[in-house]
């Protein structure tokens, strides 16, 4: 059985390593909201990618991090790698 990475897992990584935004609740429907609009800069996304790599053992190259514009995009990428 393949492990899946959910949006809730992503929420917990975001809040845990990069802090909670002022303007939006992470519990809201944030899947398609861009990290920039959520208040996370590129360093924050790098930090999230590092935590995902450590927790799930999934390799995320830097150019893949650049492609992760939204939490859902990150979830989808991770799940594709988990299925490989």
């Amino acid at each position: 059985m393949t492990t899946t990475f959910t949006l809730d897992d992503m929420r917990s990584i975001m809040g845990g390593c990069a802090g909670v935004p002022d303007t939006i609740d992470l519990g809201d429907d944030i899947g398609e909201v861009s990290f920039v609009d959520l208040g996370y800069d590129s360093l924050a996304v790098l930090e999230m990618a590092a935590r995902i790599q450590q927790q799930l053992g999934v390799r995320i190259p830097d150019d893949a991090v650049d492609e992760m514009k939204t939490p859902q995009a990150a979830v989808d990428y991770v799940n594709r790698r988990l299925a490989d």
Binding site: G15, C17, G19, V20, P21, D22, G39, A44
Partner: peptide, 8 residues
């Protein structure tokens, strides 16, 4: 300090 700022 706001959360996003505090972590960094």
């Amino acid at each position: 300090v706001p959360s996003r700022l505090a972590v960094q």
